[in-house]
Amino acid sequence: MRLDLGAIAKAGTSKANQTGGWRNFKPIFHQKKCNSCDLCRIYCPEGCVTMIEKKKYTVDYAYCKGCGICAEECSSSDIEMVVEEK
């Protein structure tokens, strides 16, 4: 690997690094009881939860590490963590 002067990296290139492989538990967004409180999106340390439309959120499994914060904080218990078998 060539190191340029100042070791400059391009912005946002970490997206090439798919951290979803770390996951043991997978969040399932049921999208049934969701009340659009937005907490799952706000509290996600990966920033990989997005709102598709009102009361419909989804998670990018390519990056989700399965920490379970979204399921724990979900105000309507609409997110379930399930063991992921690979």
Binding site: S14, K15, E46, G47, K65
Partner: peptide, 19 residues
């Protein structure tokens, strides 16, 4: 990107600092 801190960073699961 949705956020200014792009996904794919290597923080531990449930990292408070990344958040």
């Amino acid at each position: 990107c949705q956020t200014l801190l792009a996904s794919g960073h290597t923080a531990c699961t449930g990292c408070g600092e990344a958040l």
